[in-house]
Write a protein that binds this DNA or RNA. Structure first.
Lengths: 179, 179
DNA sequence: CGAGGCATGTAATCTGTTACATGATTCA
DNA sequence: TGAATCATGTAACAGATTACATGCCTCG
């Protein structure tokens, strides 16, 4: 059955929360799993049509130009199957920032330090968002709460570690420049 | 001039270390920046030919079936330019593991905990490798040392945070299952 | 002489983004 | 009424992986 296209499962998973339109799906993804996932319309709509053709999702018209997508029992089975399979390792761990740090000696003096500083600022802003999200989820009584908390805490752990690394790196990079 | 294909710059950067064959390039990438980057032959060879056509790399025959690639002055200029540009944010932050944790309630009991355990084991092994790499780099007298140390320490910081998160998550996931 | 590593490349395919194209509904 | 938001979809393209195809060289 070919490759495991993760978009399929992100969609099936989101539809366990509630039935949604394609548009709403993208919004919901940004709102709930946006800290580690994203989907574009160009992926979403074709995927929904494919899932429908396979009987994993069924649609019901809402208006003249909108339809609701609902996960089927077979869709739930397929989701459960996938949830037990190990993540496909090919998920490229590639960091453009680290590439730039690694070769920083060949850059304009101070240029890469600027990028690290911007990186830190981005992380600090993310840290703020994640903290709020954590409070929100913690207050929620959904049966998914422990799992959702785990994902947001992953984000927090990574961001905290990234901020600490940025500060440390900034110190060594600016020492370099001033020498 | 179209999109910034990062592969180009990874190649140019590596060729600042020393001239290499395409095959050797891949090896060198795995050895030195393997903790945050990787390239496949299918990318590497066409990229090398393109860089050559643009005059950013020049080749010299070594044997009947091998040639050495050397970065040119224009190549160094282009690398320097790129090093100062902010990383293209589109670098998708997508985690299949977190997707599985997020929807774990719909999985077979214990299945996702097993994946988190495997994840932790992978990180623990990586941590060992990175620790060794850090020692190696720290002992080196290359002018690149502070930058190389920074990248490996990024790996260590992320892995350490990931291990701690895994342990914590494993506790809450197994609590769940035993309830 | 056979296995494994060195070395180069192409073709098929997948996954995903971006831009384009269209139109309904809602609210200020 | 005009702008923003909701809503669906297609087309072109970019970036990358995988498998395939080839052949030399070295060492046991």
């Amino acid at each position: 059955m070919a490759k495991e296209a993760t978009t399929r499962y992100a969609v099936l998973g989101m539809l366990t929360l509630e039935p949604m339109t394609g548009y709403g799906l993208r919004e919901a993804i940004a709102r709930t799993i946006g800290h580690f996932w994203h989907e574009s319309f160009g992926q979403l709509y074709p995927t929904l049509r494919a899932l429908e053709a396979e009987g994993l999702v069924r649609t019901h018209p809402l208006g003249p130009r909108s339809r609701e997508h609902r996960i089927t029992d077979r869709g739930r089975d397929e989701l459960r199957r996938w949830l037990g399979t190990p993540p496909s390792s090919s998920a490229a761990h590639r960091s453009e920032l680290l590439l730039k740090v690694f070769f920083a000696r060949h850059a304009e003096p101070g240029a890469v330090a600027g990028l690290v500083r911007a990186h830190r600022d981005t992380l600090v802003a993310a840290r703020e968002r994640y903290g709020g999200l954590e409070q929100e989820i913690a207050a929620d009584q959904s049966p998914d709460r422990p799992h959702w908390l785990a994902t947001v805490r992953h984000g927090i752990a990574m961001v905290d570690a990234g901020i600490a690394w940025s500060e440390e790196t900034l110190r060594t990079l600016t020492d370099e420049d001033s020498r």
